[in-house]
């Protein structure tokens, strides 16, 4: 059971990574990152069956943090949208070199 859970977690994580790599919309990229975090949460939960509550506590932390991150992230995306009228990452390359 543990092994399967961990494998699923790894697969989800990989999907998240691939999403980040392939998507161009800032919002979707951020969603993919959230997917990665939740994949890790799955691992924590699975592992806490083995080791006790620490993993579950961690999951709570991660969720809280993810929420905060989402708030900040959305604000930033809005800020960029105000300047660029787009959230396509390919068009956001003022800074380079």
């Amino acid at each position: 059971m543990l092994a399967e859970s961990l494998a699923l977690s790894a697969a989800l994580f990989a999907i998240g990574v691939v999403g980040v790599l392939t998507r161009r919309n800032a919002m979707i990229v951020f969603m993919c990152v959230e997917l990665m975090l939740n994949a890790v949460n799955l691992s924590f939960v699975a592992l806490s069956r083995l080791y006790g509550a620490t993993g579950q506590v961690f999951v709570i932390f991660v969720m809280t943090v993810a929420a905060a991150e989402a708030a900040v992230g959305l604000a930033i995306v809005i800020a960029i949208f105000r300047h660029k009228q787009t959230v396509d990452l390919q068009n956001i390359n003022l800074l380079r070199g």
Partner: peptide, 28 residues
């Protein structure tokens, strides 16, 4: 500034994912 913040945020969150996964595996 907005662009920088966005890049920092996205990549930072991305990297946090790896860090967190690392923590999970170490814990595991």
């Amino acid at each position: 500034a907005a662009e920088g913040a966005l890049k920092y945020f996205l990549l930072g969150a991305f990297a946090t994912g790896f860090l967190l996964y690392g923590i999970a595996l170490t814990y595991g």
